[in-house]
Simulated assay, not measured.
Amino acid sequence: MPTAKDFGTRAHHLSRSRGPLCAGIDPHGALLQHWGLDDDLAGAERFAMTLAEALAEECAFIKPQSAFFERFGSGGVALLERVIAECRRAGALVILDVKRGDIGSTMAAYAQAYLDPASPLAVDAITVSPYLGTGSLQPAFDLASAHGKGLFVLARTSNPEGKQVQMAKRRDGKSVAQSVIDEVEERNAGADPMGSFGIVMGATIGACAAEGEARLRESTYGITHTTASQRDSAHDLSQFNGPILVPGMGAQGGKPSDLPRVLGAAASFAIPSYSRQIAQPGPAVASIRAAAAALQDECRSAMGE
Rank of each mutant, 00 (worst) to 15 (best):
G222L: 06
F197R: 00
S15H: 10
Q178D: 12
K149F: 08
N188T: 09
H34N: 13
R217T: 12
S196N: 07
M194W: 11
R16H: 15
T220N: 09
F68N: 01
E211A: 15
D97P: 01
L37D: 02
A291L: 12
R170I: 00
R171Q: 13
G212A: 14
L237E: 01
M201P: 01
L41F: 04
I244K: 07
D258N: 14
L216I: 15
Y274P: 10
G250Q: 02
I103E: 04
A207L: 12
A60V: 11
Q252P: 00
P283L: 04
K99F: 06
A265G: 10
F61A: 01
A266Y: 03
P2F: 05
A155R: 02
P130F: 11
T157P: 08
N159T: 09
M49C: 14
R71G: 01
R18V: 06
S233H: 09
V180E: 04
G206F: 10
V83N: 08
N188F: 09
A294V: 00
L31P: 01
A266T: 09
L41V: 06
R18T: 08
G19S: 09
E161R: 11
S175C: 05
A90L: 10
A60Y: 12
A52I: 01
V94N: 01
K149T: 03
G8S: 05
E70G: 14
D116R: 05
R10H: 09
V153A: 04
A122K: 10
A291D: 09
R18Q: 13
P117K: 08
F141A: 13
A48V: 10
M249R: 02
G91R: 06
A207C: 05
R217D: 14
M194G: 02
G8V: 07
I181V: 15
G19W: 04
T9N: 03
F197K: 00
R215K: 15
A54K: 04
A210F: 11
L55F: 12
D97A: 00
A203Y: 07
P283S: 03
N241T: 09
G150R: 03
P272G: 07
P272Q: 05
T50C: 13
R171V: 12
E81K: 15
V180K: 04
F269V: 00
Q138K: 11
R170F: 03
D258Q: 02
F69T: 07
S119I: 12
P27F: 15
K99L: 04
I95D: 01
I84D: 06
L37G: 03
A189V: 10
D232K: 12
S229Q: 15
T224K: 14
E70R: 15
A290S: 08
M249K: 04
Q166W: 11
G104R: 08
V123N: 01
E298I: 03
F269N: 06
I126R: 05
L245I: 03
A48E: 04
I205T: 13
P272V: 05
K5C: 08
A67G: 08
A210D: 14
I25G: 01
L31Q: 06
P20C: 07
E211S: 15
